[in-house]
């Protein structure tokens, strides 16, 4: 029997530490997309709450906590991250296992917004984008899901096939912010 070894798509590239900011790969566990059927939104949300303790989030928000989080990812869709979703939820919503489709990065440190500002058009000003807020937008030219997990930390979900490009983009932005800080 061949034994397959799980390997990170960014093996050897992270962790990356530049000027007090760290880029790491998060291992969030299972990721399931939940897309409630028309007219089933409230039923799906209630069933999800009963199953994992967190309801369907409104746009640009997340519910729950690390290990059982629900992150809004688009019109009529959220991702359950970290917890398995019982198949019974399929009565109310289309469920898709997306665990292997994404890579999740965590960027943490003082001035994390300055790095992300070079990569995404989102307004990540702390007064606007608060802990628990989530948004779909772009990181460079790649589609991404952003989640603020702490006052100085964001998670970014990127399509796994673009993982190495994402590290490259992060690294350039981190170095550029560090270089600018060194001048002042």
């Amino acid at each position: 029997m061949v034994k397959l070894l799980a390997k990170s798509p960014v093996e050897g590239l992270v962790p990356l530490e530049i000027n007090g900011l760290t880029l790491t790969e998060s291992g969030p566990g299972p990721i399931t997309s939940v897309a409630p059927y028309a007219g089933q939104e409230a039923a799906a949300s209630g069933a999800l709450k009963a199953l994992i303790g967190a309801e369907m989030p409104s746009p640009n928000r997340s519910t729950g906590r690390e290990g059982a989080r629900v992150v809004w990812t688009g019109a009529g869709q959220a991702m359950v991250i970290g917890a398995d979703v019982d198949p019974s939820l399929a009565q109310h919503a289309a469920l898709t296992d997306q665990s292997d489709a994404w890579i999740t990065f965590k960027l943490q440190g003082q001035g994390v917004e300055d790095v992300l500002a070079r990569l995404t058009p989102l307004d990540l000003n702390p007064g606007v984008f608060k802990t628990g807020h989530a948004a779909r937008s772009q990181l460079g030219h790649m589609n991404a899901v952003f989640l603020k997990v702490a006052a100085d930390a964001f998670e970014s979900m990127i399509f796994r096939s673009m993982a190495r490009t994402a590290v490259h983009e992060f690294e350039i932005a981190m170095k550029a912010v560090a270089a600018r800080a060194a001048l002042s």
Binding site: P59, N60, A75, P121, L122, D123, A135, R136, S137, Q138
Partner: peptide, 10 residues
């Protein structure tokens, strides 16, 4: 209406 004020590149 869902995402809020966003840049046109999106």
């Amino acid at each position: 209406p869902l995402c809020g004020d966003r840049d046109s590149r999106e």
